[in-house]
Design a protein around this nucleic acid. Structure first.
Lengths: 181, 181
DNA sequence: GGTACCATGTAACTCGTTACATGATTGT
DNA sequence: ACAATCATGTAACGAGTTACATGGTACC
């Protein structure tokens, strides 16, 4: 009942556990194959958070060693499930802050040579294309049996990266036009 | 010459100062009216960073009080200008990490009632529309005399928020379809 | 015997926000 | 007088990453 404010990563953990008990390692694997594109989770945060969640009574820890390899499996408690539901019911808290190094850099890149900008933008485009492909894969793996919103979010990811890749293409075209003058 | 790694916020400061000397307060004002949509700057970071940049010799501080109100104006040094150029010349460092509370929430929202989802999505759409409008304003203020990339980045901001607003609309339609069944 | 994967953790660090504090100046 | 704005800062906190450390197990 100690109403310690949850971090979003904790909520992600609760969300992941809502489908069933998992070990820390498995939570990480799940996160890496699902939410990592918009909410990455690292071990360095995961394990301490799990302990904190257990201490707060939101998850229950059970030792389930495999052979001599220790292993702790976590499952949602009723309070944990309630905390997750509370969060989902809340309106979105703050403003969608965005930290985008590429945009920051581009904003100050007017004095930079067009050829270097081209390299930069092609590189970015490449990355977004890769991310988009990755998400399309993921979407297929999810399959049609996944929840509608999970699908929608995954689809959004793909569209988002494609959107940015396209923007790179358009900007490249502009720069070429400029360079020809 | 003490090659202390620069934070992106420091680079933003250098970028802002590249157009001319400014006080901390003015840097903040400039940032708020330009880069804040993709790189927000707070006083709590700004002033300490300015001191650090001055200590590292990347900016020069000059006391320019107005009456009895103290005021320090910072300007780029040659090393500072070089550091900025170095950064602009570098390829983009890491992968565009994204932290998006809305997507995280939606990903786990399949069990949530459609009516609540509608409220959530409408709220988000509203915010994106506001942000888009704000950026369109900014773009006009920038005018046609601003650098091509500054314009492009500002334009991207608008398109980005519009893109997300549209996505909300599409998702809302899907949810309604679902709810009617 | 080696490599890959399973499994768990910690310490140091970076970046950034929030909340507070202080005081001058300008305009109503 | 008061509010708004100019101007500068600091302390405490929060979230997250990185690098490291440790060891079991499975398979070739």
């Amino acid at each position: 009942m100690s109403q310690t404010r949850l971090s979003n990563t904790s909520r992600a953990i609760l969300g992941i556990l809502s489908t069933g008990p998992l070990s820390g390692y498995d939570i990480k694997a799940f996160a890496d194959s699902s939410v990592r594109h918009f909410w990455a989770v690292s071990y360095g945060q995961l394990y301490p958070e799990l302990k904190a969640l257990a201490a707060a009574g939101l998850v229950a820890a059970e030792a389930q060693p495999r052979g001599f390899r220790r292993r702790t499996v976590y499952s949602l408690t009723e309070t944990g499930r309630a905390a997750l539901a509370d969060w989902l019911a809340e309106p979105i808290a703050g403003g969608h802050e965005l930290r985008d190094e590429l945009l920051l850099k581009l904003f100050f890149s007017d004095p930079v040579s067009p050829s270097h900008l081209q390299t930069l933008l092609r590189q970015m485009r490449r990355r977004h294309e890769e991310a988009a492909a990755d998400l399309t894969d993921q979407q297929e793996k999810l399959g049609p049996r996944a929840g509608a919103l999970r699908q929608a979010v995954s689809r959004f990811g793909g569209e988002y990266h494609r959107f940015r890749a396209d923007w790179c293409t358009r900007l490249l075209a502009e720069i070429q036009g400029e360079a020809r003058r």
